[in-house]
Design a binder for these strands. Structure first.
Lengths: 174, 174
DNA sequence: TGCTTATTTGCAAATAGTGCGAACTACATA
DNA sequence: TATGTAGTTCGCACTATTTGCAAATAAGCA
């Protein structure tokens, strides 16, 4: 997602108006790496602007998405999560905390997949399910540490999938 | 998913009862490659057993899932889809029809991903978004045809992701 | 056949979003 | 600065998907 100023300019160019609600939401989403849900963003926004409507949050997120400024993520069947990172990237989900991380994958092109005849791939989305170890077990293995994006990250050769552990209930708030 | 008979035996072993509803659902799910939703399965079931409850369908699907006989798929944010194929596999979604296909990927282990420090991958799920070409353009490219699973399939080196096209509305029925 | 208790069902309720219209306001213009 | 208007916000109703609950029903054993 571009900076709030740039997004504001794009809005004006499209004949849209700059409201305090929109400005706030631009700021809250910019560089936001938490992959918030609409509800979550609404709560954040409400702190700074009591009275802002959840409806407006949904609306603005939809606009930003249409403008290509943010991406939608349907990850675990819960609420949609929004991501201001629109680079080609993928995700890792911590099964314990539900946290969602951006993951860059180098060589998707090398995947060998037996696709249905005539299937034209437009894009691929990869989700790594797992968990964040309390104390990063820095045993040699194949895990090369590579400080690249946001935080310290390690390049690993992904383990093959085992079996999806069921998520039974959904989180709730109130 | 095991055969209806085997599943029935597992049910008995667990002290569960064999009801006509369950038997019907075992049969409808076995070898079902359509990745039905609960609602869809309910409609199919209703044809053979008018009066069966949607609640029972949900319940039985949950049981089967807990027993590891079927898998859940949260794909596009719509209703959950159920898959009796519990092998390690992935999916391809046709953006036009919404159809969902099983996809086997050979070399997931070779992916180079920059995961967050300390992230332990438990499994990886890959979804190929695209569409089924009307007339399979069998141009040479890298697409090697490999008749392997269900239908004729081609092994391709997946194209890298472009940008996720937004799905605006949901399908509806009634 | 009768009993016990697992199941099925129907209905209410929770969650996640969307459609709609009335009230409000950004902002171009006079 | 005052004013008009069309874009926005917001509340509410409503849809879709799924789950909780309790009464009615029915497997399957004795």
């Amino acid at each position: 997602m571009h900076s709030p100023d740039v997004v504001a300019t794009k809005y004006k160019e499209q004949g849209r108006r700059l409201t305090p609600q929109r400005k706030l939401l631009f700021n809250l989403m910019h560089n936001n790496e938490s992959h918030p849900t609409a509800e979550g963003l609404f709560e954040e926004a409400s702190k700074r602007m009591p009275g802002i409507s959840l409806r407006t949050v949904y609306q603005t997120l939809e606009e930003l998405s249409e403008m290509g400024e943010i991406q939608l993520m349907h990850c675990d069947g819960g609420a949609v999560r929004f991501d201001p990172n629109v680079d080609e990237h993928h995700h890792a989900v911590c099964a314990e905390t539900g946290e969602l991380f951006d993951v860059y994958v180098d060589n998707i092109d090398s995947l060998r997949a037996q696709l249905p005849a005539g299937f034209e791939v437009q894009n691929v989305s990869i989700v790594f399910h797992g968990r964040v170890a309390k104390s990063a077990p820095r045993t040699a293995r194949s895990a090369r540490i590579t400080t690249k994006s946001p935080a310290r990250q390690q390049t690993v050769r992904a383990k093959s999938a085992k079996r999806t552990p069921r998520r039974t209930s959904r989180g709730s708030n109130t």
